[in-house]
Write a protein that binds this DNA or RNA. Structure first.
Lengths: 232, 232
DNA sequence: CGGGGCCTTGACGGATGTCAATCGCGGTGG
DNA sequence: CCACCGCGATTGACATCCGTCAAGGCCCCG
């Protein structure tokens, strides 16, 4: 919702920072950009593609912190060394910005500093919305929230939202399992809210319904469940 | 009674911003500071006490976004109108900072702007750690994480950490229920990791064990469970 | 000493996780 | 061009953790 606007301003800000002092790195699908423990001396702005920032626990549990898309910035919050891994999900391009240069630009360019602050504020707001999703929403509501976000963050067409991540990656992003994600996507389909045209894409047929689910409007949820039960 | 390093720098920054242009508001326990929908023209720095930022869904579910303590800033990420409620849990004092003044100070004072960016980065990192807690940790691990954080954020003594919030508030912060929080606090006590001296306080007897739980080191978890089973 | 609210504990149910089998699609080689 | 293969997605059966409902206890305060 807000993200589109914020992303633009962030991208503009970074173009100012670039100023001929940065370079671009191209990644293939599956390629790693950052390993946990790397010195956090650089920051990356995503120019193309989708990346995944995640953390793996000692016992194998994985949590996807966020899927980064063009306009997003990776590593802004890191100090010392990176405390996460980051891989490209698709072929991708990122601008590599030395952290030193960033700070200097922020200090020298008042307008840039302000944009950076706005970007940071947006990131904080996004992260807090995410804590609501993970803390208080049901599996169905989480999946609805995820698909809605995906559709509102620069999808080329409402009728065909590319989903560049696997069910397992979605699950680790939403705090669920592959099976639960799959079951609830199926459920949304059987509720007539989405279509699965294949080819790793989703089509939203009833966006208002999806939004009601994502916003936890209980009545709608109940209705749909009852309807399903009647069908059975 | 300023707490962590991060908090200090933030507080310093805000003192600069103050510059005689801000006022302080005192709140009693239970008193509301912000209602959802209030115009987001001011930002608050917590000077004393503990406050709670939260959101209530249409169907009654509540999610506590964060417990704010001295040094924390409320509303930095808000644009337009506040999208959350905020109450004082204890008697509290907050500095009231007009947003306009904030931006001007950030632009005019390079050092201040940098501190503000560092503060924002810290908030983002904190919010993301929280997404890990909510997304991938068990109830016991969440409670351990919560108590550890509480002890590391400006407790006067390790032996007596005040817990100014109710079980229900902790539950809504951790994405659990009152009963589950209670059961797991009891469990930590029966594991010998904490004590409950009463008076709304906790004493940590085995911080390393608490940390291992909070960091999801599965082996320790298993051991403790087995030990419990043997005791029974 | 009594009351009320919060906390704790117990019994039970349900949503999600786990384990396992099958499906289906896309790629590959004949 | 078609058949085969392999991996991710889906579906099913069952287990588990946490939520729900309910009762009782404890603490604090009047």
């Amino acid at each position: 919702m807000l993200s589109a606007v914020q992303d633009n301003s962030a991208a503009m800000a970074w173009n100012w920072a670039a100023n001929g002092q940065t370079r671009v790195r191209c990644l293939e699908a599956e390629e790693a950009l950052v390993f946990e423990g790397d010195p956090a001396t650089t920051i990356y702005e995503v120019l193309e593609g989708t990346l995944m920032i995640y953390k793996v626990f000692q016992d194998g549990r994985r949590h996807v912190i966020l899927f980064a898309r063009p306009g997003d910035i990776i590593g802004f919050d890191q100090t010392g060394v990176f405390d996460f891994d980051c891989d490209a999900l698709t072929a991708a391009k990122v601008r590599v910005v030395p952290k030193k240069g960033l700070l200097r630009a922020a200090l020298e360019e008042p307008g840039f500093g302000q944009r950076l602050l706005e970007f940071a504020a947006g990131q904080i707001a996004t992260a807090r919305r995410r804590s609501i999703t993970l803390g208080r929403k049901t599996a169905l509501e989480r999946v609805a929230t995820f698909l809605l976000d995906l559709g509102e963050r620069g999808a080329p067409s409402v009728d065909r939202i590319p989903v560049p991540m696997s069910r397992a990656e979605i699950a680790d992003y939403l705090g669920l399992t592959t099976e639960t994600v799959s079951r609830n996507i199926t459920k949304l389909r059987s509720m007539g809210i989405i279509d699965l045209p294949g080819g790793g894409a989703v089509r939203v047929r009833d966006k208002p319904a999806l939004r009601l689910l994502a916003e936890c409007v209980q009545s709608v949820h109940k209705q749909s469940v009852e309807q399903q039960e009647n069908d059975a």
